[in-house]
């Protein structure tokens, strides 16, 4: 059994960010996935969604759910990440002040994603975009 979900994340509307993660959370709940797994998926995907809204003017998210794992692939055509190692450091952020005033841009996005996922692959090219593949195993 595999369930595939596809979302387009709107980069224009800060208020709407999180809709896709909210929907995935609902689906996982209906499937009877354990609450702690659902929470990890929801937080990781939500941080990914916020990143796409803040930095890349939106993007697309694909979620594959199987009995053994949940894979979230998030792709954007934004500016890309110059130094991935630096971006992974807690507290490092390139987000503008307007975003900070809204409670984000604290440099915790990618570190949080890494914290809540079992596997994280980041492929990014400056000027072209970023692709995040997050895997969470369902134990």
């Amino acid at each position: 059994m595999m369930i595939s979900l596809h979302y387009e994340v709107d980069g224009q509307d800060f208020a709407l960010a999180g809709e896709a993660s909210s929907n995935v959370k609902k689906v996982l709940k209906q499937l009877g996935v354990k609450p702690d797994i659902i929470r990890r998926v929801a937080i990781a995907m939500y941080e990914g969604e916020m990143n796409m809204v803040i930095h890349a003017n939106g993007g697309i998210a694909d979620v594959e759910i199987t009995p053994s794992k949940i894979v979230i692939i998030m792709q954007d055509t934004g500016p890309g990440i110059e130094d991935i190692e630096l971006a992974m450091k807690e507290g490092y952020s390139t987000a503008p002040d307007a975003i900070r005033e809204m409670g984000f841009g604290a440099g915790m996005g990618l570190p949080n994603i890494k914290k809540y996922t079992d596997q994280l692959q980041i492929i990014s090219e400056v000027g072209k975009g970023t692709r995040l593949e997050m895997t969470i195993f369902v134990k």
């Binding site: 800060f14 999180g18 937080i43 916020m50 984000f104």
Partner: peptide, 11 residues
């Protein structure tokens, strides 16, 4: 802002 509710929802 609305992201407070979203954050709470995820958590």
């Amino acid at each position: 802002n609305s992201q407070v509710i979203r954050t709470a929802e995820m958590m």
